[in-house]
Design a protein around this nucleic acid. Sequence first.
DNA 1: GTCCAGGCTTTCC
DNA 2: GGAAAGCCTGGA
Length: 293
Amino acid sequence: MEYKLIEKDGGLIVKGLKDFNTTHIFENGQSFRWYKEEDGSYTVVAGGKVANFLQRDDLLYADRVNKLDWEKFWHNYFDLDRDYGEIKRILSKDPVMEEAIRHGEGIRLLRQDPYETVISFIISANNQIPRIKKAVETISTDLGEYICSYKGREYHSFPEPVKLANKTPEYIKEVYRVGFRAERLKEVSRRVAYGEFDLNLVNDADLGEARQMLMTLPGVGPKVSDCILLFAYSKGRAFPVDVWVKRIMEHLYLGKDAKKKTLEGSGDELFGDLAGYAQQYLFYYARENGIGK
DNA sequence: GTCCAGGCTTTCC
DNA sequence: GGAAAGCCTGGA
């Protein structure tokens, strides 16, 4: 993608981004470490950095970001080497998808840290987004490194695995309010910290192998594993089926009471290697319209 | 092997 | 009170 970077007042202005909308990117449940400010901008914690993004027309005002940060980190984080225009053109051959895409035309799949994504989505099981966000924030405040204070809030990085591995399940449960997920968080962190599970190997595996590897971790089932593959590893064929995707796939394509296996295979069947992108447009569309409620 | 019920913590609507 | 971007266990 062709775009320009203009340094100004210690921040950065990005001009000419396409297929990019901060609301669509952040408010679709793929990441949990963002805060919407009163001016409509988003303050984001990722990669040990804090940045604020305000989008106005075709300009993105990036505060606490310099050219080097953008090129070394945020460009990749926002998946800017991928042509979402082309993805949308292909998916739009399906008239139902065309409608869904119109509602979330600026969605992009973030390239997030694998360990943070694993922990976040184990917490997400049978849970609600505000509470997931709070748990991830509390873990970071308690165990992560202090980064800065910005617009009245203090920010900390997401901690290394060993930090969570060294806490007792009782502590994790009581301090972070994660309930029955506490034991899972500790065990997964322990395996990663002591090299029993290598998150780098997931990257090299094909989709089926990667899914099987992740599902050996406690708290990681089919849905959570596909979220991790999509939101951390850019495996665009992963197709997480949650209650919302179930509802909208039944509503738009499959009819009610579709079998679990039919649902999980429907992404591949209908959208092939773009299933994960299709899932994001459908999810945003379903949530926005309250389909199936 | 597949399917399903019940349980799990706590918060939010 | 019921539901919540589910997973795990046990039993059919």
